[in-house]
């Protein structure tokens, strides 16, 4: 245990010096916690946005919107990385790869953008328009998610074609 390894990082999440079995176990724990953490933080981010905008807290509103955007950034990154390898949850990919999904979200995003512009023209503050920003973030994220699902399908199709050729 003591001095057999020359490890630089001392954080709990580091896996230097692990064998493949230990790495796999570690990854599984991390994956399950990521799933829980994502939903918990998403809930908090939305509640934060509502609370901060209702209490007219500008700093809080900005931070909570950044938190929401960051969280969706992670969600998209996860989606992209899984789509690249064709390992997205098949049911999720199936329901999100429809072209109508992207059209519906584009329409919703457009409506919220119109409302945001209208609110800004009337000189409303950031905490007044934060629900519009939140919805724009959500719909843009949904459209990008749709593209990731399509990418996953493409990768799977290519894999199937390669398998058939072999």
């Amino acid at each position: 245990m003591e001095d057999k390894t020359t490890l630089a990082s001392g954080t709990i999440f580091d896996e230097a010096g692990y064998d493949e079995m230990q790495k796999a176990e570690n990854h599984e724990i991390g994956f399950r916690l990521f799933r829980i953490m994502f939903f918990v933080v998403l809930l908090f981010a939305m509640v934060f946005i509502i609370v901060c905008s209702n209490t007219e807290n500008l700093a809080g509103t900005i931070i909570s919107l950044v938190l929401l955007a960051t969280l969706f950034g992670f969600y998209l990154l996860y989606a992209y990385m899984t789509a690249k390898r064709g390992i997205m949850n098949p049911k999720f990919a199936k329901s999100w790869s429809g072209t109508w999904v992207i059209i519906v979200y584009a329409i919703i995003a457009f409506l919220w953008v119109v409302r945001l512009i209208d609110d800004l023209c009337y000189g409303k503050e950031l905490f007044d328009v934060s629900p519009s920003i939140m919805w724009i973030i959500l719909t843009v994220e949904a459209m990008l998610m749709c593209l990731c699902a399509k990418k996953n399908n493409k990768v799977l199709k290519k894999q199937l074609e390669d398998d058939e050729e072999e």
Binding site: A24, E28, F31, F34, V41, F74, T82
Partner: peptide, 18 residues
């Protein structure tokens, strides 16, 4: 295994940000 690895990496960064 690939999925878990991606999730683990995401978790690690997300934790510090949160």
């Amino acid at each position: 295994a690939e999925n878990y690895k991606i999730g683990f990496q995401m978790f690690k960064v997300l934790f510090y940000i949160v």
